[in-house]
Write a protein that binds this DNA or RNA. Sequence first.
DNA 1: TCCCGAGCTTGAGCCGGATCAATCCCGGCT
DNA 2: AGCCGGGATTGATCCGGCTCAAGCTCGGGA
Lengths: 221, 221
Amino acid sequence: MLVRINTAPRMSIDGHLAALAGEGMCYSEFRYRRGLEIFGEGEEPEYVYQIVSGAVRTYKLLPDGRRQINAFHLAGDMFGFENEAIHRFTAEAIVETHAHLMRRSSILEAVRNGGAGTKDLIKFVTQNLAHAESHMLLLGRKTSLERVTAFLLEMDERLHHPDVMILPMSRRDIADYLGLTLETVSRALSILRDEGLLRFDGNTQRRLELVDRDALAKIDA
Amino acid sequence: MLVRINTAPRMSIDGHLAALAGEGMCYSEFRYRRGLEIFGEGEEPEYVYQIVSGAVRTYKLLPDGRRQINAFHLAGDMFGFENEAIHRFTAEAIVETHAHLMRRSSILEAVRNGGAGTKDLIKFVTQNLAHAESHMLLLGRKTSLERVTAFLLEMDERLHHPDVMILPMSRRDIADYLGLTLETVSRALSILRDEGLLRFDGNTQRRLELVDRDALAKIDA
DNA sequence: TCCCGAGCTTGAGCCGGATCAATCCCGGCT
DNA sequence: AGCCGGGATTGATCCGGCTCAAGCTCGGGA
């Protein structure tokens, strides 16, 4: 399952994990192959993760298989922190992913000792909450076109407005994030393309270029 | 706007606010009339609130008026904490509500000083996040009947399984919480009543009795 | 006591997104 | 170069929840 590519603990030099537990804390680096489960809903949390490269989806399932993806995590993002003794969702690598791992117990202890990283931890959880709240607005009240547009703008922002956006996730992943079906996502993208707001870039359908960000922002109510 | 009913600072004896900032912290008690806005989305956060009695809805609006209620807050619940310098949503009293207020700056300072309440603050934000995550699953993937059932079971639990549940919120509020219309909520309740899983209690439509909680739990996928 | 208005229920018809079903496209393999 | 398979697009039809509309219920006030 896990592919350990660096067993020797290393010092954290920058990034959130370092901020959380302070310098001098150590972590390991792991690699997860495309599609691999990183942890499962209900499992006992052992680590907190920061992505070095790759992409991760976190999701919940209903008993009959319906899936809701909470969030996508990209390079630099942290995920997997749990306050209670249980993972509230499953995490999977969307593509080959490298991540730094730090023991959850270290984080909790740092908080207990009034460590400097406490503020960062609160900030981290609060940002997740803010994201979840705006996603509830999307899921409860936006149309399919608004949802897909919002998704594109979110990814555009998180990828720092690249000329060509390379999406690591499939149409099905996008659909399960937006509370739609993959066909509806595909249709919405086609509409935006036909309206000239975006271009499918060349060969593959996961590379696309936002041509008119202002117009997209207007669609996203 | 605010109706101050107790200007003299009082000591906190129990509850979350006390835990947050430690004993010796003071707070005021305010009363909000039915329908009154407690704070608005985008405003600068000044207080953190704990409900003594009553009920509060927190929500976001789209420009055209579509509304998504994030959460209902009942007696004993805390709400309104912000890490950043802005309120992410609006809060309104659903019915006449009494609340304890504590200055946000006190909380932040307590965290800065490594106060004992820090752990409670993290727990508070994390619980909100957990609620938001399961609500995303509801909004993204559940049917109308499942949503209404989940709502009833949530309220039943939070009101400690009363014989007769008295809902403070309207059908429209429930609908805006569940991402439905008020008609659909009403129809779902009628179905559950016709199936014998709940009873409308006598005179008013906001009093209801859950007759078969197990059957309801089965419906909520 | 009666009336009024807000909230709720119920009905009829419609529509946006789901479902079912072909292709199509591209990457990877031989 | 040709083949194969998974992902994406597009089309046709369906249906769950929305919209529009009428009528009911209950609480409050004159």
